[in-house]
Amino acid sequence: MATDTRVILICSGKGGVGKTTLTANLGISLARQGETTAVLDADFGLRNLDLLLGLENRIVYTAQEVLEEECRLDQALVKHKQESNLSLLPAGNPRMLDWIKPDDMKRIVEMLSDQFKYVLIDCPAGVEDGFKNAMHASKEAIVVTNPEVSAVRDADRVIGLLNTNGIKPVQLVLNRVRPKMMANQEMLSIDDVKDILALPLLGLVLEDEQVIVSTNRGEPLTLNSTNSPAAKCYLNIARRLQGEEIALIDPAKEIAGFGAKFRRLMQTKIF
């Protein structure tokens, strides 16, 4: 087993905050940077990673058949069309939830670790068995959240569980950031979330309509249009993950000019 393999759990607690999108884009970005990367869909109940990567029609075997020893791992792995460094291990049938155990997950990840530098695990929403199985197999974690009260609360719960289970390091990605709303104080600011969750911020992703367009096509944003705001964010996150130091700028504070000065004046405390 390659000892330097990084097994990263991508989780959030709440659903719909962008775990799968982050997994897909990080996978593509890391592969483009020349790293052999495997993305593992641990969401057996509601799998979607194959759809986001545009690989749904290439799946023949899944993690289920690998565990049942009906096929070899390399038969189940689906190589990405354009990025040959990236492979997907699809989730099995939802009925797999009934019998899969934490050690099964660990076995699969160990198999993947032999071949890949990065193993990204797309975790299911919630804090039940699906999450626990995935956590058991991981070494480090990225917690995805949105600047919304419900998402932050759920993230906090997940972080607590990750801490008690000795997953280290745990880093934060703040998704769907709207700088204008933050500047107008109508959204939890980046500092707010960082302070409340007390985690190092790995990166933030700007709200971007192109994300929806890319999921429609089954081509992650980072694959083609590297000019879109969200794609740049994903690329930065991948580079930081690799150890590069890229400054994190709060886009809400970047909003300059008269408007910003006025806003700052408005925010001064008088009593």
Partner: peptide, 11 residues
């Protein structure tokens, strides 16, 4: 502004 309300409720 709702951000401060959100922050207080969360804390």
């Amino acid at each position: 502004a709702s951000a401060s309300t959100a922050r207080e409720r969360l804390q």
